[in-house]
Design a protein around this nucleic acid. Sequence first.
DNA 1: GAAGTTACTTGCCTTAAGGCAAGTTTTCAA
DNA 2: TTGAAAACTTGCCTTAAGGCAAGTAACTTC
Lengths: 192, 192
Amino acid sequence: MYSDKLRLVYQYPTMSYADIDRIIERHEKVSFKKGDLLLREGQISDCYYILEEGIARSFVHDYEGNDISTNFFCPGEVVIEVASIFHHIPTQENIICITDCVLWKIKIEQFQGLFETIPALAEWGRAWMAYQLLITKKRAIDIISLSAIDRYKQLLAEKPLIFQQAPLKHIATFLGITDTSLSRIRKELVSK
Amino acid sequence: MYSDKLRLVYQYPTMSYADIDRIIERHEKVSFKKGDLLLREGQISDCYYILEEGIARSFVHDYEGNDISTNFFCPGEVVIEVASIFHHIPTQENIICITDCVLWKIKIEQFQGLFETIPALAEWGRAWMAYQLLITKKRAIDIISLSAIDRYKQLLAEKPLIFQQAPLKHIATFLGITDTSLSRIRKELVSK
DNA sequence: GAAGTTACTTGCCTTAAGGCAAGTTTTCAA
DNA sequence: TTGAAAACTTGCCTTAAGGCAAGTAACTTC
């Protein structure tokens, strides 16, 4: 019943197979339809997901109310809103299914319990957070120092899957440009 | 000998005074001169600091070798490179003292030890990381959705101290613009 | 399978910010 | 205290990306 994708997420040097078994059996398989929200702004998040199948997108509303994509999730990734879960505060993010999705869900109390009894999981969590921080910092630097066309190429190389599913306008806001500009960038790259 | 600024950093709902005492007494007071590096790219970071006095700046080199500021540190802030410490990998960041600095230093092994015996410290650490992730995400969104002038105003409101100490060019790269543009923005705001 | 919506492209023009270079001011070290 | 370097400003021109609008294409949905 539990998938390899799920096992792989919790792979970590100090983590035993038995530990992983104990962790993954607390996950519940859930399905969502295209367009369903996994999280809505204003909610206090009390669980997180691991994506088994499908594509999801997180977004916020900026100061003018525009929808800005903050991330795209592909199979095997952890889908979570850290700030809301750890600080018990209402989230500013929405997470929406771009396609039909199958996910592994775990309530945060369940996770918290495992956290205290499996030291390797606490380490895993710290390493995971440190990694998220690293890539988020990198994202800010990329927006500052790369041209739109280079950011596009990079995203295309990193997450090609989303280009088959997500509409241009959502990819555009992730890159920090308009859909018009993205359309032109695409055209330019095709002509080369 | 230990300062209130240091105590305040570790303030947390589940943290007792005794816990804080145990933590802060592991910190060692260190001084650096303007221009000294607290961390150099390529190093594996094995300690972190809490800034008592002075201003520091972190920066990376982008794909073209340009110096891009990633953060400015003011008194009372934790000065750390999370990715390098938690993953034991060479850092890409440099941290430099903008002014003479007095800091509280703690080795990561010391910290790790406390981590295991003071549960509240582990919670504190998770909350701190979650917060860092939140503000780093916010930074990316701000770069995408705000004009240079609004980002300038925001930074001025948040960290006015750095404008008295850091040269324009370093503030400019943090905002994602050139020093020329920043000079013009400043001029425009003065004339209003 | 027709109507309506959403997605995408393209043209024309504008705008925010950058590039370069010259000039001034400030800082700092010898 | 003076000379050099760094910091900052400003002018002139360029460029990347945006704004708007018209048009086509694609996909729901009834």
